[in-house]
Each structure stands twice: as C-alpha cells, then as structure tokens.
Design a protein around this nucleic acid. Structure first.
Lengths: 149, 149
DNA sequence: TATTGTTATACTCTATAACTATA
DNA sequence: TATAGTTATAGAGTATAACAATA
C-alpha cells in the first residue's frame, strides 16, 4: 500500500499539535506566549468580561487574572470598569494590543493556509464547513467577531 | 445563507483548541498533565532517547529533563542507560506507564471519534489520509509506533 | 571538537482555596 | 445569598545559559 493508513483520531491529535506549533512560532515572533496571543485574538471583536473570557479560554478565573495582569503590564489591554455593574470589568485591546492581535492572526492564517493548500479547493470549503459544524455543536460557536477577521 | 461561513485557518485553530481540551480532560481523569500524557503516548512504540524525544515534542532538552523527572518520580518511566553510548539514555515506559498511556489514547480516541462522527464515513477516510499527508510533509511523519495503537 | 544530557535560574501558566466588593 | 473578580499559594511547564561526561 502506497499511503500509510492513519486513524482519524490520531490524525486530529497530530494536526492539533502542528497547529499549536505554528501558533507558538508566530506568537514568539511577536514576543508573546501562545496564551497571550490567544487572549488578544479573542478580544478583536470588542471588550469581554473576565467571566466570559474564562469560559472562552477554558481557564479558571484566577488563572485569567494573572494572564490579563501580565498582558496589561505590557500595555496591550486595559481593564475598563463596567458602569452598570461595579463588580465587573471589561478587557479591551489597546492600539498596540490590536496591532499585535492582527499581526498574530495574519501570521497564523498565512502559515495554515499554506498547510491547507495540500487540499483541493473544494475540499477546503467542505472541511471548513464541517469543522464549523463540529465547533458549534460542541460549545465553541464561531462568530464573526471571534473569527478575528 | 443557512450555514455560517468560516475561514479554514480559523477553523483549524479552533479545532486544535477543541482537541487540546479533550486531551486535557482525558489526561486529568488519569491525574496527568497533557504534557505528561503526550510524553507517555510517544513512548508506546518503544524507548526513545532524550534528544529524539525533545525533537518529537518540540521541547528544549532542558525542559524535557524536568518533564521526564516528574514522570519518573511517579514511576511511569525509567531512564535506561544505553550500553553503546555511555552519554545517552533511553526513556522507557514502566508497566504502570504503559497502562496509563493506553488509557489516555483510548479515552482521547473515543471522544474524538464522537466528534468525527459528524462527518460522513467516506469523508472521514479522506480527511485522515489528507491530514496524514500534511503531517508527513511537515516533519511529523505518522509511523505505526508513534500512532500509539 | 561535537554531542548527550543535566543543572541553575527566571519566568509564565495553571488550579485550589480563601477573600472582597457588589448585586 | 449569589456573582464578579482578586489574592495567596503551590506546583508544573518552558527557555536560556552554563556545565559535565563521553564520543
């Protein structure tokens, strides 16, 4: 047999790691950790509260506090008090944060599009649609804002 | 339009995170970190040296030393001296390590197969083959041993 | 000299538990 | 009482630089 067989589950795990490596490399180019870059990318659609962010990133709120602290110290986000609830705050990108979020998104997209170019164009569309359905069915809906366009 | 559009690159990043969450959940069920679980799973094909392991896991060797230390302290791997090169050692699973590696592999595979069941069977095969080609083309060849079957 | 692996150091990331302030 | 977020603490993960032992 010319082509090695591979379980789909194994393929997905390996592909996941490959994507993580791409994400890590691009983040590092901008002197960010992958976690910091992902945080920034999740904010391009507008400010988000800590509770909602912790849900989006699958992090305990206390873990998120530290992550936001470090990114805020670098001047990439601000904590904006919510006037309607004095307990809450919204995490918002600064101009520099927006620039980095955009740069990371572009860098990752370019690299992954190269990987995806292994697929025929028609398959790329079907794959994207199928993955979109899976994500939506498993609590990670893809909204325009979260897509970081 | 009924189905939300999504860029393939964005879809791949999100899918990657979803797979990571599955991996993290299954690892935690066995009281392992995802990194520890991945290390164990990479050893099911047989003992591997530190340099080769660091390449497989995209880790600096010094980082790997600590990771192996912690897993060894839990009795899941042994450092076996290489008789043909007294500088080198091979990392080998213990019986308990093998058991956990197998359990993690099974747990992750079951969960991901559920996700993949969203695809028609024919698409699953095509997807697996396509991903296998991508991995091979980008320095992550899928061997029988590394597939952790 | 080059390679294998470890040690020392300094961060970042993460979870759990306890806490403050507001709703 | 419940919720939003922080602090305190401890451990895990990671990279860089310097090192030891062997090839």
């Amino acid at each position: 047999m010319a082509v090695e067989e591979i379980e789909l589950a194994t393929a997905l795990v390996r592909l996941s790691h490959l994507v993580q490596y791409v994400f890590a490399d691009v983040s590092r180019e901008h002197d960010l950790t992958p976690q910091q870059a992902q945080l920034l990318c999740r904010l391009v659609g507008g400010p988000v509260g800590m509770t909602e962010l912790s849900r989006m990133l699958h992090l305990e709120k206390s873990s998120l506090t530290g992550l936001v602290d470090r990114v805020q110290q670098r001047g990439l986000v601000d904590r904006v008090r919510d006037p309607s609830d004095r307990r809450a705050c919204q995490i918002a990108l600064t101009d520099e944060g927006s620039r980095l979020a955009y740069a990371c998104h572009t860098g990752v997209t370019n690299q992954l599009d190269k990987l995806a170019s292994e697929f025929p164009a028609a398959d790329q569309l079907r794959l994207a649609a199928a993955v979109g359905r899976i994500l939506t069915a498993h609590g990670q809906p893809v909204t325009v804002s979260s897509a970081g366009r």
